[in-house]
Design a protein around this nucleic acid. Structure first.
Lengths: 242, 242
DNA sequence: CACGATTATATGTCTAGACATATAAGTCAA
DNA sequence: TTGACTTATATGTCTAGACATATAATCGTG
């Protein structure tokens, strides 16, 4: 996705135009607020049709690098570092990606009628059945994260009979449930007795917490809490202008 | 940005086509791997030209919702929840957005030749001058986060004379440095004496840590560490398929 | 059957126009 | 000066074609 890569990959005209402009913005040559050339000027400069220029500018606008205003022109936008892409990989991919051996262990699995706490956690009103799963992921046989998950059986009935002793529920769900939306909440806690034991760390040690709530078209699917030893794990979010 | 909003905003044809397809993917009607209609089929169905259909499909491909393969067709992609957008707002915006009063206090500011540790933290090799800043952000007069920042003066010479006693360095930089790229690393620690005092929390209490490293076209600009009380602050990252 | 050459086809890019629409800028009257 | 009206213009969308290109499918040959 870098400029160089795009240019090398396919030196099509609209990509070259896009890359040229992106470069001037990123190097600061065209600062925020700067009006970039009008479409008809770029048409003249590159000797192409307006649709080609328009495609380049539309993509820059979609990437929030420029803002387009009718009658006024297109302007370089103020940087917005507040938005970064956080890659939350599948646990197996994350661990094998670090060059370590992935291990999985089911700690507990319960099928029960949803308690008030369960309903609250899943954000559903009606009572129904849920599966509660606790498991542990390890890297090179060292505890990497503990997972505490709730699956709404009203949305995913197959989960009642799925065998989670071999396959982690996250990867099972990924293969059994189509497109979803999710919200992640990240916070920090200190390990209590149970957590400390599961992660093999000291009581009171810091832990990074990710709470993920997943749904599909307004239907709750699962809520999961992941606990990582805070001093060894890091989440990386990268922002790139474009 | 929802389907309904787009449809209500501008019922242009290509947006309608995009929304129609997006809906079928998100509801699971067209599961991952499903081949969506060929462009010429959609042209027939909507009675428009191929360019219009192509624009709709191109945007879906850019959003990673579909994959396009020459000669084969376009296919619904497997969900990739590992990617989420993390909104790391400007501190003032974040706090005022919570409906609380923003407060800022400069704790320390030093101009010095970069130490080995500074160079390591900024990822630069050459020695040079840096500004080291420590400050605190508060919400309703309660400590919200402490900030520990290093600015590379080789990249931002103006920072040497900037007055950080009133304006936070983050917001100053946002207005003085054009487009940047950034990498955020999130982890958890427990408060040491100094942190506990600055945040007015107990020693040993959990803290959420964000390390942000910012650069512009391969040039380091600043490195900052933000410490939040871990039990009160939460970072929210949301994924939406499209 | 295996493998290389050929062909058909869906997407990728592009053109030279068109009309629609929002809005900055200018005009004019109160 | 201010507010209402008009106009000019840049972008937004769309068309009906075109050729390029990657590749799945087919065909032929050893």
């Amino acid at each position: 996705m870098s400029l160089a890569t795009d240019a090398a990959d396919k030196p099509t005209l609209y990509k070259r135009i896009r890359a040229d402009i992106e470069k001037r913005i990123l190097t600061g040559e065209w600062p925020p607020g700067h009006r970039i050339p009008f479409e008809h000027e770029l048409v003249a400069r590159y000797g192409c049709s307006r649709m080609t220029v328009n495609k380049a500018l539309s993509e820059l606008a979609q990437a929030d690098l420029i803002e387009r205003r009718r009658r006024a022109g297109s302007f370089v936008r103020r940087p917005q570092h507040q938005s970064a892409v956080l890659k939350i990989a599948d646990m197996r991919a994350e661990i094998t990606g670090l060059g370590r051996a992935y291990g999985y262990e089911l700690i507990g699995r319960k099928l029960r009628a949803a308690t008030a706490a369960d309903r609250d956690r899943l954000g559903v009103k009606k009572a129904g059945k849920v599966v509660a799963i606790t498991c542990r992921h390890s890297a090179d046989n060292v505890p990497f994260a503990v997972e505490d998950r709730l699956i709404d059986l009203a949305s995913v009935p197959d989960a009642a009979t799925a065998d989670f002793s071999r396959e982690p529920p996250g990867s099972w769900l990924l293969h059994h449930v189509p497109w979803t939306e999710a919200e992640h909440t990240i916070s920090a806690i200190v390990a209590d007795d149970r957590t400390a034991e599961a992660l093999d760390i000291a009581v009171g040690a810091p832990c990074l917490v990710i709470d993920r709530y997943t749904w599909r078209s307004a239907r709750t699917i699962t809520a999961v809490r992941l606990l990582y030893p805070g001093d060894s794990h890091r989440l990386v979010a990268r922002f790139k202008g474009g």
